[in-house]
């Protein structure tokens, strides 16, 4: 101990002293994802548009002086004015208000279909991936078979039985669209269950159910959210073209597809009447796609930040 002399020591510069200091504020996963999402201009624009569309759909009809079936026979096919923002249709109904009501139906179809997909797809895919082996093989073959019949045919068959209503459109859309979700979740669970934390949970004695729901599925949440976001526009689109063909939701209730269908007869004289609902569909679908894309990069921990 004697040979510890003062000359062996050197005073550190301030800069060197702070070498170990972590300059970046520590962030949780969600904070980082949020930040990434907010920096993504396309995704942010999409999210803002979506919020506006949803708010309009909820509150617009409450404030508006017109209802979706109020007819003003003196004002048929009117051009846009301060009283009727998008003009009126062939029965003198306000097109803007009808589009707002259409937004309610279209968004509802999209959301309900997405929720059904979320529940069925996650549970099915999770179980299939977790159990593995023969069960997995069988479950995936069933999925392959359901998947190889086009969705349109299911919807048409469902509508023949239960009649053309919002409910049967939603059931029809949900029958085959959960499969993408199931496949994605299965893939994720299959790779996650081989990792150490799953093994640790198993060694501690956690039940299979607990491992699957509390450990594995929680880790696939990012993927699940992205898939759900992308499923909503898919459902909206399917409903729109069914209604557009006149086999979906029928009058006086009107989704965007029905509105476009209604105005189609007059397309040569009043092309804008068809254009408004179609624009609404396009904008919403784009917005959802942008948000989904943004969430995809934000929630993927491996993606470049």
């Amino acid at each position: 101990m004697d040979n510890l002399e003062a000359k062996l020591f050197r005073k550190l510069e301030t800069e060197e002293k702070n070498d170990e200091f972590i300059a970046v504020e520590s962030q949780t996963f969600l904070q980082a994802a949020m930040k990434n999402f907010l920096h993504n201009k396309r995704a942010l624009a999409g999210a803002i548009i979506l919020v506006i569309v949803i708010l309009l759909a909820i509150f617009g009809p409450m404030i508006s002086p017109y209802s979706y079936e109020t007819m003003d026979t003196t004002l048929k096919n009117a051009s846009p004015s301060s009283a009727h923002w998008f003009g009126t249709d062939k029965f003198g109904r306000d097109i803007f208000v009808r589009i707002l009501y259409g937004a309610r139906i279209s968004l509802m179809v999209g959301l309900v279909a997405a929720i059904i997909n979320l529940v069925i797809g996650t549970v099915y895919g999770g179980i299939s991936g977790y159990i593995g082996g023969k069960t997995d093989m069988l479950m995936m073959r069933i999925v392959d078979i359901i998947y190889s019949v086009p969705a349109m045919l299911y919807i048409v068959l469902i509508m023949l039985i239960f009649g053309a209503s919002v409910t049967s459109v939603m059931i029809g859309i949900s029958i085959s669209s959960w499969i993408d979700m199931a496949r994605i979740v299965r893939q994720e669970v299959r790779s996650l269950k081989e990792q150490e934390f799953a093994m640790a949970a198993f060694v501690i004695g956690a039940s299979g159910k607990r491992i699957l729901f509390k450990h594995l599925l929680v880790n696939t949440v990012g993927q699940i959210i992205v898939t759900v976001t992308l499923m909503v526009p898919q459902a909206i689109f399917t409903e729109a073209w069914l209604s557009f063909l006149g086999v979906g939701i029928s009058a006086p209730l009107a989704s965007w597809g029905t509105l476009a269908q209604d105005a189609r007869a007059l397309i040569e004289i009043f092309p804008m009447q068809t254009a408004y609902p179609m624009l609404a569909i396009c904008i919403t679908i784009f917005a959802f796609n942008f948000v989904g894309e943004g969430l995809g990069t934000a929630l993927d921990p491996k993606a470049k930040r």
Partner: peptide, 23 residues
């Protein structure tokens, strides 16, 4: 490409119909 994949086909069909067929 993104545009081509995400615009619904009936909207494309209708737009083409209005612009090149009718107008």
């Amino acid at each position: 490409l993104t545009l081509g994949v995400s615009v619904p086909n009936f909207i494309v069909a209708l737009l083409l119909l209005i612009i090149f067929g009718v107008q």
